[in-house]
Design a protein around this nucleic acid. Structure first.
Lengths: 360, 360
DNA sequence: CAATACATGGCAACCCATTGCCACCGCCGT
DNA sequence: ACGGCGGTGGCAATGGGTTGCCATGTATTG
């Protein structure tokens, strides 16, 4: 029997296996990549020899000829944002199901970093999921030209997209606030490079129109707690009784900022967030928010990407829209519960400029 | 002038560039990988042609000969846990500085998944950072034999490690609770596969010994809010006035669970967590916790890995220890502030079994 | 029994870049 | 004028699999 011990440090290749199993390298290759193409007994023998020698097929070498690495990239805007955790989980599950490995890339909310990372990774992966990309439309199309791409949380012609039903979410939030007696909603904007940010504002404009609620926008602010606290300061200068924040982190920041300044939520101001992150449930007061099916987003986007890689035409129809729901907690309440108070007590003396128009 | 338009879908290779620039492929290769080895004018010409043709060196092909992919893997136990966000940031920064790409792998707290993922990825990366690995020591050593590995949040002979000063953190927490009059601390354990979990408990045993504070352990529980809420129920059966939780998420879960049962934190029970996640600051009451330099952990581990990849011997001395600090917030308070109450009012009638001994 | 079809396995080209080694050139020193 | 030398650039092998095509050998069919 030939020696079992290979010189250490040396990779075991199909050639080594071929030698031991007394077949040609191509047969060894086929035994793994197209088992039906080789006699089952031979295949079994090869598999055993391979096992004994500790052979592992080299994915890089394989990729060189097949140009399939069995890896997909998942680009997220900010790993610090808990929203993405669930999305990642969903994507990972779908990828694993399809025998794919996910490489996660954190763009740190930076257009530049995102492009650089995508650039570097592109040639190494079979496809890309861009979750909340901060890149420009044209940059995304550029990427999509070279690799299968699915875009998450953003709609873009000619590129397959998965989005959540932002208009409906905003509408539900506005209805909810309206029912509580609020006739004016302030939208606290997040990053301008964020697609949902624009959509949410426009949806709020529409909803305001239909529901006869006035709306205005302040910001943009960083989509973080710190950003929310800064927004709170600005809110003091231009008071509001109902606030819709770009996301939960900002909403939480707003609540903290307001309470630090003696403003009560929901007594004086109602606050609604977006995303329903875990923290929304643990803050005091619990945050009313628009919940999205995070896990489903990740998994739907990834599954679609996988079919594209498998050769399906990236059906460039309308984006796939996932449903949302409003989770009502304690950060929203009826407006001005204290009778006789036209305005919350913390309104500064400076008169509020005439009611904000429905901006274009 | 030859045609500028390449057949679409076809990758541009050094051969294409060589043809256009009228040099041999090897010269093109050298123009990029060892510019000093080729005439600067030639190199410039080649670079321009390459630019015009849109040539990008194929990292896979390069890796095949150099066996360097310029990628490292960062394996984390649970992407849902916000602790890792900062670690990832630190690691990513260090990697980017060294011209490396990080591929992030989420093990979902599963030994099995972690092994599988590492297995799949190993041959594709130049090195691995295992952050809070759930694998067995032997499995880790196995991996370390094949690729440079740095282990984070775990000490392991023969493998380079980066850990935080758990003993000191526990000691500080115990001192803090002792100063508040607590003479008994209950440790709420996290995953048994977690190395810090064991260390924290043992450190608490030691600290208890020295500070003359009794200690006991309950658990293990899942290191999540849900796990903490379950722990809270068990805490009701076996009351305590001071609790040290494995991490912040459990601590928050414990606080919620307790308050749901009418127990006041910190009035009746003081709770201390570990990690100082963002949420620790936003819950009510604010969570007293042991803070670790997360970002530094990730970056230190990665930098060390990079030097190993660069050829340095993975100095297998003692682990690198990073300092911690105690962040005191509002979840800890003096024991039994209400005079005349030997025990908090919520103690069930069933007598508490004799004070837990200092277990082995 | 001849003719054809199918199941297996080998040969060799190919994927793309890297690199050791050699060849050529112009220039120097003697 | 000739040997030697540094600077450039090309040839060809290499890394580890994959795959089109052909050559067997066996099984099926008329």
């Amino acid at each position: 029997m030939p020696d079992h011990t290979r010189p250490p440090g040396k990779r075991v290749t199909i050639y080594d296996v071929a030698l031991e199993a007394d077949v040609s390298p191509s047969t060894v290759s086929r035994a793994f990549s197209r088992p039906s193409r080789v006699n089952s007994e031979t295949a079994e023998r090869i598999r055993q020899v391979a096992e004994r020698l500790g052979y592992r097929t080299n994915p890089l070498a394989r990729a060189l000829t097949t140009s399939r690495t069995q890896m997909i990239a998942l680009v997220i805007a900010d790993i610090t944002n808990p929203v993405y955790a669930e999305i990642v989980r969903g994507a990972q599950e779908a990828a694993t199901d399809g025998e794919y490995t996910t490489v996660l890339i954190d763009a740190q909310e930076s257009d530049r970093l995102e492009r650089a990372a995508v650039e570097r990774t592109m040639s190494t992966v079979d496809g890309i999921v861009l979750a909340s990309s901060r890149m420009s439309d044209s940059a995304i199309r550029m990427v999509a030209k070279q690799r299968p791409v699915v875009v998450l949380n953003r709609a873009l012609a000619d590129v397959p997209c998965v989005v959540t039903d932002n208009p409906r979410g905003v509408r539900r939030a506005a209805e909810h606030l309206g029912e509580l007696g609020h006739d004016h909603i302030t939208y606290v904007a997040g990053p301008q490079a964020s697609w949902p940010n624009g959509v949410r504002w426009r949806s709020l404009l529409e909803a305001g129109m239909e529901l006869e609620i006035k709306v205005r926008q302040i910001g943009p602010f960083s989509p973080t707690m710190a950003g929310g606290e800064r927004a709170a300061q600005e809110l003091c200068a231009r008071p509001a009784t109902a606030v819709l924040a770009f996301n939960d982190q900002m909403a939480i920041g707003i609540i903290r900022g307001l309470s630090r300044m003696g403003v009560n939520v929901p007594g004086d101001v109602s606050v609604v967030g977006f995303d329903n992150i875990l923290a929304a449930d643990i803050v005091t007061p619990g945050l009313t928010t628009v919940a999205a099916p995070l896990y489903a987003e990740g998994s739907a986007a990834t599954r679609h990407l996988l079919t594209m890689i498998g050769g399906a035409p990236g059906h460039t129809g309308p984006p796939m829209v996932l449903p949302v729901r409003l989770v009502v907690r304690d950060s929203t309440a009826a407006r001005n519960p204290r009778p006789g108070r036209a305005r919350p007590p913390w309104v500064r003396q400076r008169p509020v400029p005439g009611p904000a128009a429905h901006l274009p």
